[in-house]
């Protein structure tokens, strides 16, 4: 019994490592967000449109990268998959409830947009992060 349980635990840990290695979404933001205090609750409020302005960095602009990485990030941040998130924002945006996120197909485009837009916040694969933007830990 014991060896089997141990083996199972090891397998789970391995699987988790593999996923992290494959796609590790990293929360990124425009450089003007450096002074903002951003924890998990803030991330959730921002991505659900409940918080539309930063404390000192102006309006919140969301940037969403399409693809499997979006699912992974959104699960962790707002407990939604991409489709649910999309419908949530569509409803919110089309009823005037907030400024809709910008959706990007390519990481480069997102990176550029976030780098150029003050108050912008988004996510990228860890490998795509560069110095044009800051990484937010979101905890």
């Amino acid at each position: 019994m014991k060896p089997f349980f141990l083996r199972l635990l090891a397998l789970a840990a391995l699987t988790g490592l593999c996923v992290v290695a494959q796609a590790a979404p990293t929360l990124v933001g425009n450089k003007n967000l450096a002074s903002e205090k951003i924890d998990a609750a803030t991330v959730k409020a921002v991505f659900l449109g409940k918080k539309v302005a930063w404390e000192g960095a102006g309006r919140v602009t969301l940037a969403v990268l399409k693809g499997p990485i979006a699912d992974e990030f959104l699960k962790g941040a707002v407990e939604m998959d991409f489709g649910q998130f999309n419908n949530y924002w569509r409803r919110l945006a089309m009823t005037g409830g907030g400024t809709a996120p910008k959706f990007f197909d390519k990481p480069d485009d997102l990176r550029r947009f976030v780098a150029e837009t003050p108050g912008a916040i988004g996510f990228l694969d860890a490998s795509a992060v560069d110095a044009s933007l800051i990484t937010l830990n979101g905890n």
């Binding site: 399409k66 569509r90 945006a93």
Partner: peptide, 14 residues
Amino acid sequence: ALKANDFTEAMRLL
């Protein structure tokens, strides 16, 4: 526009 997740454009069109 909606299909392209361009909610801003969609809102504008609407």
